[in-house]
Structures are given as structure tokens and as C-alpha cells.
């Protein structure tokens, strides 16, 4: 468990932000899912749970998800959606009732199911100081001491298929794949490579131009992306699996298949 001396519920975002800048050992506490496993010696934990960031709002143009919304809230409030589908395999219900969307975004884990899925959609991460940042830029930029307010996903009819391989239920994924389509515009995203999720640009282009079937596009993606090894699998194994999962996701999106954002 990370240790800290103080625990504060700031009354405004500005107070929270100032507190975060005041000391390098102050940290925002989301669901405490990841922090609880560390041995960090922190000074002050900054709790955002009283700032109204726990809501999911579905509007005609956007779905807005507050940073303190839990993974389980995605399942309950957006049933049948892409996000509900991608968080289901994460640990157990009791864990998903804790872990937050904000903590998942901020952590930018390579193995992240929600980051993979959100990257396949038209997603903007909302930050207190930096403002609105497209998710790909956010995930790949150097983490700054900012506060994630949540994310906004365009409710534009884009549909996606989600695929993941786990060695056993509730374990971290060996690979995550999200493929999305809006009309003829395709996007292929692969995460848990085990590095951070990446857009397979060549494969996405081939699909969008109608120049590749599922198998060809999947091979192109496996070819252009890099894969590494860790205790869950080798890079070579991941490359093989990627082709299978990507092809499956593409097949699911032909016709009316796939999942929407809400």
C-alpha cells in the first residue's frame, strides 16, 4: 500500500490542481486500485470524489464520462456498448466498482482495455490545465502533473468490435484489439503489445480504401506494428495472435455488426 500522511477532499478543481503542484509527493487518488499495490511514499492524497466527476452523460453529439466514474458504471449505465464490453474481463465486479476511468486514462497502461477501445473511437481526453487532447496524443505524451477530468467520445455512429486474449479469466490481457468503422473509414488499434495501444495506420488505410479483406488487413497490421515479450507471451506469439483477433474483429464489423459508444 502506498503511504501518505494527509488525505484531502478539495472543494474545487482549482484547489485540487494547486494541491497537486504544491508538492511532488502529492497525488490524485482515483479508485486506489493501482496506488494500493505500490510502495510509493506520498505526502497528500487528493480525493476527487466530491467534485461531481462521477457522471456519465449521454448526449446527442457526445458521450461524456467523468474521471471518477467506475469501470462498473460503464457496464451498468452504457449496457451493450463497446466500453461495457471491454471492461467486463477486468478482474472482478468488486474491483470494477472501485477502479476509475480517470485512473485508467492517466496511467496509460500498455495492457489497458479501455484505452484500446477508446482509441478506436473519436475520443478526447479532458484535462484541467492542458484542456482537450485527442486520446492518441494524450496516451503518447509525457505524463504531466495535470488532472484528468474525464473523456468525451463522439456519438457519431462509429461502431467497433473488441477482441482480447487472456491466459485465464480476470488476468491482464496478452493482447487487446479494437477495430472500428464509420462508413468507409476504418481504424485498427492494438494494445498490450505489451506496449501502449497503437493505431495500425497501413491496415486502417487499406481497409478504408477497400483494398484489403480481413486476412490481408490483419497481416498488414501484424507486419507494421512492433510486439514485445513479457511473462504472458513472446513477441512472436503476440504477432500471430494479433492477426487472428484483428481478422475476427473486421469480420464482426461487416454488415451491421459491432458495438456503438452507447
Amino acid at each position: 500500500m502506498a503511504s501518505f500522511q494527509n488525505y484531502i477532499f478539495p472543494e474545487s478543481l482549482e484547489d485540487a490542481y494547486e494541491l497537486l503542484q504544491a508538492n511532488r509527493r502529492n497525488a490524485v487518488i482515483g479508485g486506489n486500485g493501482w496506488l494500493a499495490l505500490g510502495r510509493q511514499k506520498l505526502h497528500t492524497a487528493i480525493d476527487l470524489s466530491r467534485l461531481g466527476l462521477g457522471q456519465i452523460r449521454v448526449g446527442p453529439a457526445y458521450v461524456e464520462i467523468g474521471a471518477m466514474a467506475t469501470l462498473r458504471q460503464l457496464e451498468r449505465e452504457l449496457p451493450g456498448s463497446l466500453l461495457a464490453c471491454c471492461v467486463k474481463p477486468i478482474a472482478g465486479v468488486q474491483f470494477r466498482n472501485l477502479a476509475t476511468v480517470g485512473g485508467s486514462l492517466y496511467s496509460r497502461f500498455g495492457f489497458s482495455d479501455p484505452v484500446t477501445a477508446l482509441m478506436a473511437m473519436d475520443t478526447t481526453v479532458l484535462l484541467h490545465r492542458q484542456g482537450d487532447v485527442p486520446i492518441v496524443d494524450f496516451v503518447w505524451q509525457k505524463p504531466s502533473r495535470d488532472i484528468v477530468l474525464g473523456c468525451r467520445v463522439e456519438n457519431n455512429g462509429r461502431r467497433a468490435a473488441y477482441q482480447t486474449l487472456r491466459l485465464s479469466a480476470t488476468d491482464l490481457p496478452v493482447l487487446t484489439v479494437a477495430v472500428s468503422r464509420l462508413g468507409s473509414d476504418w481504424r485498427v488499434v492494438v494494445g498490450a503489445r505489451p506496449g501502449k495501444a497503437m493505431l495500425a495506420e497501413e491496415a486502417s488505410r487499406l481497409l478504408s480504401e477497400g483494398k484489403a479483406d480481413a486476412g490481408t488487413a490483419a497481416s498488414a497490421a501484424a507486419e507494421e506494428l512492433s510486439f514485445g515479450s513479457n511473462m504472458r507471451g513472446s513477441g512472436g506469439y503476440r504477432r500471430q495472435i494479433a492477426q487472428v483477433l484483428i481478422a475476427r474483429a473486421i469480420e464482426q464489423l461487416h454488415g451491421e455488426g459491432g458495438l456503438a459508444i452507447c
Binding site: G31, N32, A36, L37, D47, V93, Q94, N97, L98
Partner: peptide, 13 residues
């Protein structure tokens, strides 16, 4: 009423 893991739920909350 919501089931959570008490090994990681922040006590002050």
C-alpha cells in the same frame, strides 16, 4: 450496498 474490495478501498472515503 455496493460490493467493493476493502483491501484497496480508501478508508477516508
Amino acid at each position: 450496498g455496493t460490493p467493493v474490495l476493502s483491501c484497496s478501498y480508501p478508508l477516508p472515503r
